[in-house]
Design a protein around this nucleic acid. Structure first.
Length: 373
DNA sequence: AAACTTCTCAACCGCTTGCAT
DNA sequence: TATGCAAGCGGTTGAGAAGTT
């Protein structure tokens, strides 16, 4: 196994490519194909080594390369594939048409990795880590984040922090809150009133936990059906409340809305198989759904949080592989995916309630990739 | 407006892998 | 089997852009 004696010859140019060089390379490959990279530079009249030509072609000049910002779906795919494949950039790129391994690697290192770290998630293991969690996001306004070292919280900020005090022992909820409240950038939806967020988060978590429980036991049709009902109950209530928490943003693109519509439609089809509402006073496996709903409608205190948490925890223990009850777990439920699944369930899980949750609102909720940066 | 800092990403480096001989 | 070469891969670098002071 010898080593490629590449770029060793003196006189070969290095550094940025000029438009003339690009033109020569493209023209040559169009005419002759990629062929032998070692002989290509000489034949194409380029003072570059073959390796440099290959990289320039595969990473930049190839006609099928998709340029521009990564989409929501691409980002999600990268996070999920990375949790499975690790830093196998070429393997990840193979599943993202038009994207190069180099581009994905750069995007991971400059955007996704930092975001995961800020949210308290280890970008290597994809496991939540309390020591990485940036709790300051609960306090520091986006505009002040840059000068966080000298930022003094206002009374309103302190009130916000007090509102989250009951969450002290629940790192998953804290992380979700941190995510939803850290919304820099003008294109981002912002939480109008952070203190209103808490009850909604609980509902969202309940709905998500219920959905996951239902998915856990497809072989147990009866039990799964019960959980589906629970999911719909929670989803319906949360649908009514969540839109009021968001400041509307006019920048949501048509493409985003279409993507979300498709996702919501898929969910609707699945939900249609079960589509019905839980009867009044319905009790599911010992869980009194209406009582739980009433509980989360109120400003939560430590005791009802404890009650809710133990409910979800016991569900978790039934199947640890599903990350049930964690709004920000990876890989299958990355921070974004967790919200995605939750909101998608709202969008289609309960057909009547979902109708009240417009696509515009849904897309605002789902478009978290920007404001978590 | 200038100086400084931070961020982005194209390109490079060096190692591994696969194939032909 | 051993060797040489080409291609592929992942980590790193550094120039320029963008943002901040």
């Amino acid at each position: 196994m010898g080593r490629a004696p590449c770029c060793e010859k003196s006189g070969l140019k290095k550094g940025p490519w000029t438009p003339e060089e690009d033109e020569k390379l493209v023209a040559y490959i169009k005419k002759n194909g990629q062929g032998n990279w070692r002989t290509l530079p000489k034949n194409a009249g380029l003072a570059r080594c073959g390796k440099s030509c290959r990289l320039r072609w595969t990473n930049y000049l190839r006609p099928d390369i998709k340029r521009g910002r990564f989409s929501f779906e691409e980002e999600e795919t990268i996070i999920q594939l990375h949790s499975i494949l690790g830093n196998k950039w070429s393997a990840i790129a193979a599943r993202l048409p038009g994207r190069t391994d180099n581009e994905i690697k750069n995007y991971w290192n400059t955007h996704i990795r930092k975001r995961l770290l800020r949210m308290g998630i280890d970008p290597v293991t994809h496991a939540p880590r309390l020591d990485l969690l940036d709790l300051s996001a609960l306090l520091i306004k986006p505009s002040a984040a840059a000068s966080a070292a000298c930022y003094y919280p206002t009374q309103a900020d302190l009130d916000t922090l007090r509102a989250f005090e009951p969450l002290a022992g629940y790192p998953d909820l804290l992380r979700l809150a941190s995510t939803l409240l850290s919304s820099p950038g003008s294109a981002a939806p912002a939480i109008a009133d952070p203190q209103q967020l808490l009850p909604w988060m609980l509902q969202a978590q309940m709905a998500q936990a219920a959905a996951a429980m239902a998915q856990q036991a497809p072989q147990q049709q009866q039990a799964g059906h019960h959980h589906q009902l629970m999911q719909q109950a929670a989803a319906g209530a949360a649908c009514q409340q969540m839109p009021d928490l968001l400041v509307h943003d006019a920048n949501t693109t048509v493409a985003q809305q279409q993507q979300l519509a498709a996702a919501a439609q898929q969910q609707d089809m699945a939900a249609a198989c079960h589509g019905m509402h839980p009867p009044a006073g319905y009790v599911d496996d010992g869980l009194d759904v209406p009582a739980l709903m009433q509980m989360v409608h109120q400003q939560p205190d430590a005791s009802n949080l404890q009650q809710w948490s133990s409910t979800v925890t016991s569900s978790n223990n039934n199947n640890n592989s599903n990350n049930v009850g964690s709004g920000v777990s990876t890989p299958s439920s990355s921070p974004v995916a967790g919200l995605n699944r939750t909101a998608t369930a709202y969008g289609g899980g309960a057909s009547d309630a979902a109708a009240q949750f417009s696509l515009q609102q849904l897309s605002e909720l789902l478009d978290v990739s920007d404001y978590m940066m």
